[in-house]
């Protein structure tokens, strides 16, 4: 792996991975990946299908734990704390490292209850008005408040695809996480809805450390400041997004982003 520029060094990383391997049963999905995720940055993971970028993302909040036979070795730290340590409570971890999925997956509940779900299970709101406040803030941050404020009691599944995905983002940020992981959040959306999500990511930058996996290189180029290129389970190149897209150092990266990938 090559750091493309000296000024890439992230002085205050939110999350740090050191020599991470992920196995699914016998198969090794991730091979010796080390990476720093900056606090105020949007970090994009790109790479061809099956390169392990989603697998790696899911190991950052231990969602791989839910997959039978998955095993993670190496060290992943959140603020210097090993997230795979026995003392780490996975429930707490996921409250700090939220996740948004590929397909919008609102619960079959009202819009309000969708957003209030996390704060309720974590007991963040002592009373109804506090909860109202949290819901409004999350929906506002997700750019959805104006569209849904008059119909909070309607089912979340009745919204359009793009609205559903923003609802899912609101749901994730309602518990005030430190990191938001996004696993191809726009792959099921049309270009307009995609643009709104990208604008939202831009707005959220600085409030949360954001890591986004995307198939769409243009999207990585548009929303991120750091880009990591994964190939066959390894991290091939990690650097400033501008460098990766104008002047990648690795032949494999160049071939992938210029469309010469086998």
């Amino acid at each position: 792996m090559i750091m493309t520029q000296e000024d890439l060094t992230i002085t205050d990383p939110k999350m740090t991975a050191k020599g991470v391997n992920v196995f699914y049963g016998e198969k090794q999905a991730i091979n010796d990946v080390s990476i720093d995720v900056g606090t105020d940055l949007v970090t994009a993971f790109i790479g061809p299908s099956g390169c392990g970028k989603s697998t790696f993302l899911r190991s950052l909040n231990r969602m791989n734990d839910t997959v039978a036979g998955a095993k993670v070795t190496g060290r992943i730290e959140l603020d210097g704390e090993d997230i795979y340590a026995p003392s780490m409570d996975v429930v707490q971890l996921r409250a700090r490292v939220g996740m948004v999925f590929q397909k919008p997956n609102p619960f079959p509940k009202s819009i309000y209850d969708n957003v209030a779900y996390g704060p309720r299970i974590h007991g963040l709101a002592p009373n109804k008005s506090d909860l109202d406040g949290i819901v409004e803030k999350a929906l506002t941050r997700a750019g959805l408040w104006d569209e849904v404020k008059d119909r909070l009691a309607e089912s979340g599944t009745a919204l359009s695809g793009g609205q559903q995905q923003r609802l899912c983002i609101a749901r994730a940020i309602a518990v005030d996480p430190e990191v938001v992981l996004m696993d191809e959040p726009c792959s099921a959306l049309d270009p307009i809805a995609t643009a709104k999500i990208e604008e939202l990511i831009h707005e959220l930058r600085g409030k949360f450390a954001i890591v986004i996996v995307t198939h769409n290189m243009q999207q990585a180029a548009r929303v991120s400041q750091r880009t990591a290129f994964f190939h066959l389970g390894t991290l091939v190149e990690y650097g400033k997004t501008t460098d990766i897209f104008t002047n990648p150092k690795q032949e494999r990266t160049k071939d992938y982003i210029t469309g010469r990938y086998g």
């Binding site: 909040n61 969602m63 839910t66 429930v91 707490q92 971890l93 996921r94 409250a95 939220g98 996740m99 999925f101 590929q102 397909k103 997956n105 609102p106 619960f107 079959p108 509940k109 779900y117 996390g118 299970i121 974590h122 899912c168 749901r171 994730a172 518990v175």
Partner: peptide, 27 residues
């Protein structure tokens, strides 16, 4: 009930028990 629904709940830090009671069974 789509796996995504279950993942969504777990990713918010819900325990499997909360996920079953509050998301899976209602769905």
């Amino acid at each position: 009930v789509p796996q995504a629904m279950r993942d969504g709940s777990l990713a918010l830090g819900a325990t499997p028990n909360e996920t079953i009671r509050q998301v899976l069974i209602p769905a």
